[in-house]
Design a protein around this nucleic acid. Structure first.
Lengths: 241, 241
DNA sequence: ACCTGAACACCGTTCAAGT
DNA sequence: ACCTGAACACCGTTCAAGT
């Protein structure tokens, strides 16, 4: 959205000066730092240190920490649109799986996705167009098409955001132990369903786990989620005017 | 999960000393501050100031800022389980709508929901049991029941997290203007579907808006989302063994 | 144009000391 | 038991100054 990096470059920096700072390098270095240490530990100052530069240097290329994080998210989520397919259901399935794979490759960004309206640095017109076309092919029109677009976007984000929600800071063993104990101490009298299914649920379902999707992926649940959304949209399309 | 507030109270504080600090009062004051100024502006120090106390006083009742935020989320999301209903579809619809209403009442907490695994301060066994029972009544069993539980949990969070994602800090008028301009400048030749539907989408669909759900609620899309998930689960239940 | 060096106005959290 | 007062080790961001 037009920042310093878009200004014309008339500098006389020689072609060999490959160690110059720029926005892309900053984004990549920041992403590497995030992958390594997590979001909670990420700071512009540490990023500057890692790049061998003063903190203020970062701010010549990037307007703020928040916008930097938005740019990182946009980078991780670029090129998600699947190639054209015959069946719109398959295309949506592919989209959801690609999205999950992208976040899984950089799971520390998961909480950033719903964190800001500003994630539009991408504002991927091609992506939106592709989703609209596919949903149109499924039979949606007018406001119902717009609603279906919003459904797809929300569905894309929902499961994955939760699956890769960050665990407590390392060394919080008390929390892990407490969580295990709590989950292991469900009174079967009061909660028979929960007690009966606990072997399958403990550390393997939302709100009953102490590790996130990087350690314990919820593959079968994710596939059920994808099928739910696809089947639901199919039904919604049939109901249409 | 057992913190200072759970210790036995043997103090001789008189019954009239109603201005004493405690965990509940801190949670409520913090929530009020969040509602007022937003998450980005929230600090423990400001909270202490607002309560007429030194920052360190907060830390006698609450172990950390993060745990305080988790407690706030748990408070906002308490008592979400709808009363028993004849039709499991109606029960799920009611759950999703109640969840949205709860977040809508305190929208600044939206980004916190997927932000931590530690939101378990609640760990609402009753809620989990209710969802399991309802889904069991719908025909899910075993691992498929667990998957369906995860689908419901993820679906609950997905749309609402996006709908109420925080806007950029106030005074960022350049961003709003830029966003408007960008959304208004879609080349119809390259993106015909997008251009055709722009009147319905601009500021009213994800990634093409500059205000969030507190200002522009996406009611019809949310209802479509709910129907999608319910219909999808219905289909999934029928497919079952 | 791009970066240094230093400063400003904050943070969350800890800890000895008071009562 | 509960809070004060002060300190520690950080932050994001700005800005004059250098090259």
């Amino acid at each position: 959205m037009m920042d310093q990096a878009d200004r014309p470059r008339r500098g006389r920096r020689a072609a060999g000066a490959t160690n110059a700072l720029n926005r892309d390098k900053i984004v990549l270095a920041a992403l590497a730092l995030l992958d390594e240490r997590g979001l909670a530990a990420f700071s512009v100052r540490d990023l500057a240190k890692a790049m061998g530069v003063f903190p203020a240097a970062i701010y010549w290329h990037v307007p703020s920490r928040n916008q930097l994080l938005a740019a990182i998210v946009a980078h991780v989520l670029r090129d998600l649109a699947p190639p054209p397919m015959k069946d719109w259901r398959d295309w949506l399935r592919a989209l959801f799986r690609r999205y999950r794979a992208a976040v899984r490759a950089h799971p520390t960004i998961a909480p950033l996705i719903g964190a800001q309206l500003v994630s539009n640095t991408g504002l991927d017109f091609a992506m939106i167009e592709a989703v609209l076309r596919v949903l149109s092919g499924a039979g949606f029109e007018g406001q119902r098409l717009v609603d279906a677009f919003n459904v797809v976007t929300a569905a894309q984000v929902g499961f994955v955001t939760l699956e890769f929600a960050p665990p407590p800071p390392e060394g919080a063993d008390e929390w892990v132990d407490g969580m295990r104990a709590l989950v292991g101490s469900v009174p079967a009298g009061d909660y028979p369903m929960l007690a009966a299914h606990m072997p399958r649920m403990h550390n393997r379902s939302f709100t009953l786990r102490w590790q996130n999707g990087t350690v314990v992926p919820l593959d079968s649940s994710f596939e059920a989620y994808v099928e739910t959304v696809v089947a639901g949209l199919e039904r919604l399309a049939q109901r249409g005017a």
